[in-house]
Simulated scan of single mutants.
Amino acid sequence: MQNKTKIAVGFLAASAAFFTTLEKYEGFSAKPYKDSGGVVTQGIGSLNKPDGTKIKMTDPLITRKTAQEWAKAHVSKDEIVFRKSLDGVKLSQVEYDVYLDFMYNFGQGNWRSSSMLRNLKTSKYKQACDSLLKYKYVAKRDCSIRKNNCYGVWTRQLERHQKCMRAQ
């Protein structure tokens, strides 16, 4: 049974389950590659190194440990923005992890302008969960259509939505 207790966001942090799910969906790549949106990526979905420099296709291989360190550095920066955006909002740990994962995947700009955030600020938790399903596009391709070669983006959204709904 999941804990559905909602507490102030300032008291929460990314859980071990968050990082397990992150690596499950992002995967690990020692070498740089282009993701489904054509963005150069390395490690566990990292677009930038911890110092802020963009990953380049010519960058050297990295270890899984380095990739995990990069992901943790990225998440710690995202969490500062994430918590500030949710000042006064209460979430369960599951919800916190779900929305932080969304931010990691879709970026801070998409989070800040999202209907999820607007709904959370007005305590519309179910509507916030449902808003996850609006984000199914990558590079103008509808990822809910399997042949568009980005179906993993959609299945990740479906899993986020299911987790979120179970936390209500």
Rank of each mutant, 00 (worst) to 15 (best):
T58R: 08
C150G: 11
R112Q: 15
R156T: 04
T66C: 00
T155R: 08
N110L: 15
N148T: 06
P50Q: 02
D87M: 09
D59W: 12
L12T: 05
R64Q: 14
S76E: 12
L117G: 06
S36A: 09
G10H: 09
L22V: 07
S123T: 13
A167W: 07
A73G: 02
T155I: 14
R64P: 01
E26C: 04
G10Q: 13
T20P: 04
S144H: 01
S123V: 10
G45S: 07
N110Q: 15
K6Q: 12
F106E: 03
K31P: 00
R160Q: 10
Q108A: 14
D97A: 07
G43F: 12
V138E: 04
N119L: 04
A167S: 15
R64F: 01
C150K: 10
D78R: 03
S144L: 06
V9H: 00
I44F: 08
R146F: 12
K163L: 11
S123Q: 14
E159L: 10
K124I: 11
Y125P: 01
V40A: 08
H74D: 13
R166E: 15
L117E: 09
G52L: 11
N149H: 14
L158F: 01
Q168Y: 09
K84G: 03
P50L: 03
R118K: 15
S36G: 09
L120T: 07
N110P: 05
N110R: 15
V89M: 06
G10S: 13
T155V: 13
F28R: 08
E95I: 03
P32T: 08
T5Y: 02
H161A: 02
L91A: 08
V39H: 04
K54W: 05
Q168F: 09
